[in-house]
């Protein structure tokens, strides 16, 4: 079972991408769970979302304490005194951060010994016009955990297709793809 924990701030769409990942994982034949950190939702406050992905039916119903992967959508959380993004992260696990700083700098800030990936999803969000870093970060996550891009793109299309104009859908798909392609790793 693959367990993923997302860190973001309220309003950055962590719950949305965790749902997208769940839909895509089901489409490729996995069992999934996606759940937000339960509680009052406040824009800008630190939030978490979770995914479980497995080949067989998932029966457990409790929080994820020892994730295989941590994704940080907002790098200001690396400096947070109340949120420790690497808490419980398996030593052989993966830390993916949306940031302009290098993986080596992330390692210095977090002291995490496992694999570290970074993606400048903010920049992709701006240049592609999608505005939100969550979608390119999801693309980067797909690359980092070797998850195929195609089901993600399909589910993204379905999710946006009902409400968004075609050019918005295209921009999101491009941002997803770019996140996938631009993932950088070193020091890992």
């Amino acid at each position: 079972m693959l367990e993923i924990r997302w860190h973001a701030r309220g309003g950055q769409g962590a719950k949305t991408v965790s749902q997208l990942l769940a839909l895509a994982a089901l489409a490729r034949g996995n069992y999934v769970q996606a759940f937000p950190e339960y509680g009052p939702e406040r824009s800008g406050a630190p939030v978490k979302a979770f995914n479980r992905i497995d080949d067989k039916k998932i029966r457990v119903h409790y929080n994820i304490y020892e994730p295989d992967v941590v994704v940080v959508v907002d790098d200001s959380l690396l400096n947070s005194e109340t949120v420790k993004v690497t808490e419980g992260l398996k030593p052989e696990g993966i830390l993916l951060v949306n940031t302009k700083i290098s993986p080596a700098e992330v390692r210095r800030k977090t002291n995490f010994k496992g694999k570290i990936f970074t993606i400048d999803a903010e920049k992709i969000a701006e240049s592609s016009g999608v505005g939100y870093a969550n979608i390119p970060t999801l693309g980067a996550l797909a690359r980092a955990v070797d998850f195929p891009l195609e089901p993600l793109a399909e589910e993204l299309k379905k999710m946006l297709g009902k409400k968004a104009p075609p050019e918005k859908v295209q921009a999101n798909l491009a941002a997803l793809q770019e996140g996938y392609e631009r993932l950088s790793a070193n020091g890992g």
Binding site: Q19, Q33, A34, Y38, I58, H61
Partner: peptide, 12 residues
């Protein structure tokens, strides 16, 4: 059904 644990969790 358990509040949040089931109501807010996306499952297959």
């Amino acid at each position: 059904l358990d509040g949040f644990t089931l109501t807010h969790t996306a499952d297959v």
